[in-house]
Design a protein around this nucleic acid. Structure first.
Lengths: 195, 195
DNA sequence: AGCGTAAATTGACCGTGGTCATTTATTAGG
DNA sequence: CCTAATAAATGACCACGGTCAATTTACGCT
C-alpha cells in the first residue's frame, strides 16, 4: 500500500473544487449546481459523488476554508479587553457567516461534527473558535471579564450568543437592532455580570 | 368580499394536513413525501403547492403545533426557582426539538420569521417561549436568579444556551455529556453568576 | 512489454420537490 | 336559470441531487 491514492484522483478533486470556487464567484453559494460543477471540471456527474458524499460536503469545504482563514487572522490580534472590543473582534467572522441566510444555514447544519472520525472544516472552525475565544479569558491575563467560571465556558457562551444574534438578524421582526448592538447587550450580561 | 375563501378550500387543506399527520405517524417527519401526502388526501400534486408554499411550510405547521402545545403545558406550571428546576422545566421542549436531527434543523431554520406579516407557528412558538421564560424572572417574584439584567434578556440567554446544548447533542464528539448536564452548567453561569 | 487487479470514471437513470397552462367548480348578477 | 368572472384543482412536465452497473485507466508484478 505504498500508493493507495492516485495522482489522477487528486487532480480531479482539485478540478472540481476549482470549478466550484469559480461558480461561487459567479452566482454565489446558493446558485451552485452540481451539474455546472461537473461541466466546468469536465467530468461526469458520478465522479463528483465519488469525491464528495453530497453537495453539502462541497459547500462545507468551501465555506469552511473561508471561516478558517478568518479565524487565523482573528487569532493573530491582541486579545480584546472590553465588551465592545470583543464584539469588534467577532465582526469579521459574523460578516462571513451572515453573508446570506443560505450560508448561515449551511454553517449551522455543520457546526457540530456528526461523526467522530474526521470532523469537517466547519466543525473544525468551531473548535478553533472555541480555542481562540477561550484564550481571551486566560485567568492569568489582564482583563476585566468575570473569573468565576472557566474560560472555556465563557467561550461557549460567546458562540451561543453569537448564533442567537445572527439568527435574529435574519428575522424581519427583530432586524431593527443591529447584530453589533444586540451582541453587545448579550456579552455585557454574560462577561460582566454585576449580579 | 363577503366570502373570499370557499368551503372547498378549507376542506382540501384539512385533508392535506390530516394525511400528513398520518404519514408522520407511520414514517416520521423525515420520511414524509409530498407525493404520498397528495395520494392520501386524494388531490393532485399542484393542489398541495396551492396550499403550502413548499414542503417545509407543511413541516413547520406540523412541528409548530406540537411545540405550541408543549409550551402551553409549560406555561401552566409554577415557575422554577433553582437552576435544576429550570432545566427540568425545559426538558419536554428539548425532547421535542431533539427527537431527530432532521426536526431540529427544521426548527432552527424557522425559528426566526423571515417575513413580518404572519409569522409561522415555529417562530410563534419562539415568541411564546420568550414570554414564558421571561415570566420566571419577574423582578417582583421570589427567585434567586440575577436581577442586574431584565427578565427578557435572561429569557433570550436561555434560548441561546438551549440551542447550543441541543446542537452539541448531535455532535458525536461532545455527546458524552448529556443535554441536561451541559445546560445546567450553562445556566448556572448565566442565571447565578458569582462574578 | 504484457497481464491481472483494483481504483477511478462514466452517463443513463431515478426520486422527489416544485411549476404552470389548462380544465373544472363556485359564486354573483341579471 | 343562465352566464360571465373568478377561484380552485389538475397532472404533465421540469430541475436537480444522487445512484450504480458497466467501462476505462493506472499500477505492481513477472
Amino acid at each position: 500500500m505504498n500508493k493507495p491514492v492516485q495522482q489522477r484522483t487528486l487532480k480531479t478533486r482539485a478540478n472540481l473544487v476549482e470549478a466550484a470556487r469559480a461558480i461561487v464567484l459567479d452566482v454565489g453559494y446558493e446558485g451552485l449546481r452540481t451539474e455546472e460543477v461537473v461541466k466546468r471540471a469536465s467530468v461526469a456527474k458520478g465522479t463528483f459523488f465519488a469525491h464528495f458524499a453530497d453537495k453539502d460536503a462541497l459547500l462545507e469545504l468551501l465555506i469552511g476554508e473561508a471561516l478558517l482563514e478568518c479565524l487565523d487572522q482573528m487569532a493573530e490580534r491582541p486579545a480584546p479587553v472590553t465588551v465592545p472590543e470583543v464584539v469588534e473582534h467577532l465582526m469579521p467572522l459574523i460578516g462571513l457567516m451572515t453573508q446570506s441566510r443560505f450560508v448561515f444555514d449551511v454553517i449551522v447544519r455543520h457546526s457540530g461534527a456528526a461523526v467522530v472520525e474526521s470532523l469537517g472544516p466547519i466543525a473544525q472552525s468551531f473548535d478553533l473558535q472555541y480555542a481562540v475565544f477561550a484564550k481571551w479569558f486566560d485567568p492569568e491575563g489582564d482583563h476585566p471579564f468575570r473569573r468565576d467560571v472557566p474560560p472555556e465556558l465563557l467561550a461557549e457562551g460567546i458562540q451561543a450568543f453569537a448564533i442567537q444574534a445572527m439568527a435574529l438578524m435574519f428575522c424581519a421582526i427583530n432586524s431593527v437592532t443591529s447584530v453589533e448592538d444586540r451582541l453587545t447587550v448579550y456579552l455585557n450580561a454574560w462577561l460582566l455580570p454585576s449580579k
